[in-house]
Every structure is written in structure tokens, then in C-alpha cells.
């Protein structure tokens, strides 16, 4: 099988000269087009490092990442990133934050009016049309993250990379954004890699969950398929046996087999 996105034998060692610390070792993962994959693991297991390698923001010391058989060696809009802390530019309005990305990606292929429409379309998709003239400091944390998602979607990426996109939000906001993301995902069918440490979020949103062992020298421990039909409803799944089973599998991996390093003391 020739995968859409292929992570092959990726390893990374920080400080290779002074005090080499292997962060990731031998990570192999193949992701099909349109698949939603979550990466879950305890803090410090190198989840974000792995995402940054796929994004091209970090270079692996071993192995490589291939997207449509092309080696990934630099960041680019075909692998748009939704950053954990939204990373909106505070001097640009909500609209201009998305528009900057649209201009950069489609500046040569689409006309002025078309780019304007596309910017509005993506802001509408995340439910932010009402605040396009506001500055990031004037909207809530959840709204900032929505704009961050709109910016990433507007790049029409081949792979959408999300680094704990809802980690900084309160539970209610998080649920609303998860629902919004699921809605978008049913229509767009993006290929997504999402980092999370929230078990429910992983099961609810993913087609597959990649579970990482603890660092240093972390690697993929297990991969779990989530055989739930799409167009999932949060409430329907509450009593679903498959859902409960998947959830249990992830919990057992995280807390029975790969307890966090400092958990023994607690």
C-alpha cells in the first residue's frame, strides 16, 4: 500500500553533541487520504515533536516523512498547522489573519474577489463571520482557536496538523469546538493529525488513535482503530458499547501499561 502520508523510521535526538537525548525512536506510521488520526500520550512523550517533524518545523535525525511520496523537508501551507495557543497575529483583525494566509497560498491562482469570498467562507465555516473586524485580543479563547482553524482550513492543506487545538479551553467550549470540527470534517474530509491528551476527544474525533510510549526515546506503542460510524453524535455515544470499549483500551494503555514517569510517587 502506498500511503498518502508516510512517516518512516523517524527518530530525533536533541543536543546531538553535548548531551544527546533521544526524544523519538523508530516511528513508523502510514496515514490514508481523508483519515483522522489522533496521537495521544503523556506529557513529554514527544507528540508535539512528531507533529513538528511532519510540519517540517523540526528536522528528524533519522528517517523521513513523505507526503504523496515527496520528502517533507521544510514547512509549507500544504501541511497547515493549528497551533495550541492559536498563534494569531495580534496586529491583524480576524479577517486579515485568515486573509494573509489566503493571499499567500492563492495570491497567484485566484483573483482579489475570489480570495475575499474564500476568506469569508472559511470564517463562516467555523462560525466566526460575526467578528471579522475584531482583533484577536477582543475575542474569547475559543473564538481565537476557531480563527486559527479557519486560517489552517483556508490554506486547503493536504494534511491538517493540530497541536492540542482545544487544550487551553474549558470543557464546554472544548465540546462545542469538537462538534464544530466534526461538522466541518464530515463535509471536507480532510486528512488530519491531531495531538491530544484527552481520551474522549481522541475517541470521538478519530478514525485511528496512535498511542505513544513515554519518553525519552518514545515511540508508537499501539494503534487503535475506532470502528464507529461517521456523523457521530456526542450524546448517542455516551452509552455506546464500542465507544466505551475504545475508551477503555486507550485508558488501559495510558494508565496501566504506560503510566507517566512520575506517577509512582503519587
Amino acid at each position: 500500500m502506498s500511503a498518502y502520508l508516510s512517516i518512516e523510521g523517524v527518530g530525533i535526538t536533541f543536543n546531538p553533541r553535548k548531551s544527546p537525548t533521544p526524544a523519538l525512536v523508530g516511528v513508523d506510521l502510514k496515514i490514508a487520504k481523508g483519515e483522522f488520526v489522533s496521537i495521544i500520550g503523556h506529557s513529554g512523550c514527544g507528540k508535539s515533536t512528531l507533529l513538528n517533524i511532519v510540519a517540517g518545523l523540526l528536522k528528524p535525525t533519522l528517517g523521513g516523512v513523505f507526503l504523496e511520496r515527496q520528502l517533507v523537508d521544510a514547512p509549507g501551507p500544504d501541511r497547515a498547522v493549528v497551533f495550541q495557543n492559536h498563534s494569531l497575529l495580534p496586529w491583524l483583525t480576524v479577517y486579515d489573519n485568515v486573509r494573509l494566509a489566503v493571499n499567500k497560498v492563492f495570491g497567484k491562482t485566484r483573483g482579489e474577489a475570489e480570495r475575499h469570498e474564500w476568506t469569508l467562507h472559511n470564517l463562516n465555516l467555523v462560525g466566526m463571520s460575526h467578528a471579522i473586524a475584531k482583533y484577536p485580543s477582543e475575542v474569547s479563547g475559543g473564538m481565537k482557536q476557531r480563527v486559527g482553524i479557519a486560517r489552517a482550513l483556508a490554506m486547503e492543506p493536504k494534511v491538517l496538523l493540530m497541536d492540542e487545538p482545544f487544550g487551553a479551553l474549558d470543557a464546554l467550549n472544548r465540546a462545542r469546538l469538537q462538534d464544530a470540527l466534526m461538522g466541518i470534517q464530515t463535509t471536507l474530509r480532510n486528512t488530519v493529525i491531531m495531538i491530544t491528551h484527552d481520551v474522549d476527544e481522541a475517541v470521538l474525533l478519530s478514525d485511528r488513535i496512535v498511542m505513544m510510549t513515554n519518553g525519552p526515546a518514545a515511540t508508537i506503542g499501539e494503534v487503535l482503530d475506532i470502528p464507529l460510524d461517521r456523523a457521530r453524535k456526542r450524546l448517542d455515544l455516551a452509552d455506546d458499547t464500542t465507544y466505551a470499549h475504545c475508551r477503555g483500551e486507550v485508558l488501559r494503555f495510558l494508565y496501566a501499561r504506560h503510566r507517566p514517569a512520575d506517577a509512582d510517587a503519587a
Binding site: A55, G56, L57, A74, P75, G76, P77, R79, A80, V81, F83, N85, S87, L89, L100, A101, K104, V105, M155
Partner: peptide
């Protein structure tokens, strides 16, 4: 300048 802004710039290939 926060590293985040540099990352945004890198992803956008400014």
C-alpha cells in the same frame, strides 16, 4: 518576537 509567529511565517512560507 514569539517563536509562534516565526512558525506561522514558516508554515505560510513568507
Amino acid at each position: 518576537i514569539p517563536n509562534d509567529y516565526r512558525n506561522v511565517a514558516a508554515v505560510l512560507r513568507l
